[in-house]
Design a binder for these strands. Sequence first.
DNA 1: TGATGCTGCGTTTTT
DNA 2: CGCAGCATCA
Length: 810
Amino acid sequence: MAEPSRQQLTGTPTPAPGGIAARARAAVGAPYLAGLNPEQREAVETLEGPVLVLAGAGTGKTRVLTTRIAHILSLGRARPSEILSVTFTNKAAREMKTRVGAMVGQIVEGMPWLGTFHSIGVKVLRRHAEMVGLKPDFTILDVDDQVRLLKQLLEAENIDEKRWPGRVLAVIIDGWKNRGLTPDKVPPGEAATFAGGRGIALYKAYQERLKTLNAADFGDLLIEMLRLFREQPQVLRQYQERFKFVLVDEYQDTNVAQYLWLRLIGQGSKNICCVGDDDQSIYGWRGAEVDNILRFEHDFPGAKVVRLERNYRSTGHILGAASHLITHNEGRLGKTLRTEDEPGEKVAVTAAWDSEEEARAIGEQIEELQRNGERLNEIAILVRASFQMREFEDRFVTLGLPYRVIGGPRFYERAEIRDALAYLRLVNQPADDLAFERIINTPRRGLGDATLQALQQHARRRNVPLLEAARLVSGTDEMKPKPRRALRDVVAMFDRWRAQKDTLAHTELAEIILDESGYTEMWQKDRSADAAGRLENLKELVRSMEEFENLAGFLEHISLVMDTDKGEGVDAVSIMTLHAAKGLEFETVFLPGWEEGVLPHQRSLDDQGRAGLEEERRLAHVGLTRARKRARISFVSNRRIHGSWSSAIPSRFLDELPEASVEVTETKGGFGGYGASYGASRFDTTASFGSNYSTPGWQRAQARKARGFAEDETDYADDVAQDEVASESVSPAPERARAKAAAKRRAPLTIEGELVAKSTGTVSIFAAGDRVFHQKFGNGNVSHVDGNKLTIHFDRAGEKRVVDSFVERV
DNA sequence: TGATGCTGCGTTTTT
DNA sequence: CGCAGCATCA
């Protein structure tokens, strides 16, 4: 079915009447198609029917997606509003918009259905809210609200919150929602997983509570949309007819609910194109189902499968190492990445005594790279777990090496932002009880638990929101004078702000609210190290409101999106987790901590067995494939785990690298002889290039597909294999005998860029005894000055040696 | 309501 | 071991 249009598009120009052929001819020479390789081109031009694009790392996945949209638009096959294009993150959505825009012009403005699953969910649900028991102005709960709500339910049910924390229940319910399970569909066997069988009832109660609050959590945005489409065929049909083309990014990350939803939508035009890479599936633990890739062909018979295997990112050795490593996974569809690039540097593997040594070694390499003109922005350190980051931060602080940590607490997750938003939410929507609860006593107003409980009783009895209950109660003498007065003040504040809502600019209103509520003042009075940062964040929040028309528009946006990419433009090394690195690339990538227990992580092994191990291996694969020119792996011999020292075993993944692409570098000083004992013999001796291994995973998959999937869509039984994972416990190693003897003084660094501190020669503007502030460590006293290096006693972080450009006098 | 002490935990994270 | 979250006490 794809053939006719393909002919049309790629065939020789024949005089044909009508605009389509003409436009098609034009498209043949379209600039955006130039430079695509044959597979990419096929993926772009096969517009009719279902298409599954298996796109390995660095093979131009995003390019295919964006070009495909451009192609559809420029052929006039659909209007912008008739293309549904879903991504997982806002970042990906934004990038796609930009790139399509660059190709086609301004049309993107009119691509209302390019967005994340969740933002599309909100859009659909607002239109049909009544059909799922909501009002169109429903609020979207964040995780805090969700947990708070569940806690209340647990309390009401008299369930011991120690044994059954609300947080855990939230995760369980999320899991059910991920799998598309409404309370009535949860398999009874799983009820026992929480509070001795009360899990399902709690889930049900939670959903009912959400409806009375006119609220939806993130999971609801998907599952309610799914329910809507299932229960209202006419609504489904409307969307099926609207969307002439459906595109899905990062398809391997879809969970069951998303998959089922896509399947419904896709059954309309059948022009659904999913792009993904099973080898980059690293989110199994949060519900992603790689099997969705196989189900795709099952549910969309005759789907065209296109493999993108030409890698344009990495040099030969890096690619050789990465793709050989991943062949050790069994459950694969099988792709063989290849490159026409030169072999380049081999992947370096280095041993270090401990993590401090590891950080030191990497720090030195980075300075070396920097001397050779490499930009710090092109260097990344990718770790398995965030506890590994600290060592690097400490080291870089002392070196004066600019770095940035990607990930960490997100802007909108910070307490001060959530508080501020709660105020705004409550002004916008006086019935937002969760917002009310959050800020009623922040800052302190003497309205504690007792008052809140009383309010809740009133509210329930009279069936009014909490803010309204507060108004009623404050007019009676049911409460002691103090809380009564405080309540009256709060109600009056909100009345005032609400009255100003339509006359004042929303940014101005926000400032007034933060000011009059005493919230800003609360932080101004706070003497802790991060108070200044929090105030700065609040300013940033108000600034970010400027882009929006009004308060409601801003809140709508912010509940789904709030990632401010700050700090871009500064040349700095990136430190982040492997998960956070997916989709990024760097010239140089450092991969520390390749030890058993860290990568692969012990917990994955313990909880998920073979499946866990394979996901860890994919993580390693993702790490390697982030590198364009240099990949440097390291592991330590000794690691501190929960306080005590253990000797670590090099990761099994090191054994799985192809010898031909790897170079084991000697450790300086040869601590403990690990560098020596870690011999080349441990590597796979299979050639790394042109090794045309068969793809058993794919064959197995096909066989399985032929047998047919269970028709019941809820049947997603896991076949997690048992695994005998070696977890040798290790004996404590002797405290480090540090051979710091001839630690040759580094030559003074001559590094361009104002951010890098000069190492010598300058007299510091600081003196011993100065009181200073450091972005990371807070306030402290300078105890010693050595050139531009300061020894500082931090109030909270203890003694550190820091380059002076990182602190300011207070 | 704030401070202090105790207990338990210790991977990854988007929306 | 170090921290966060809770509970208890003043």
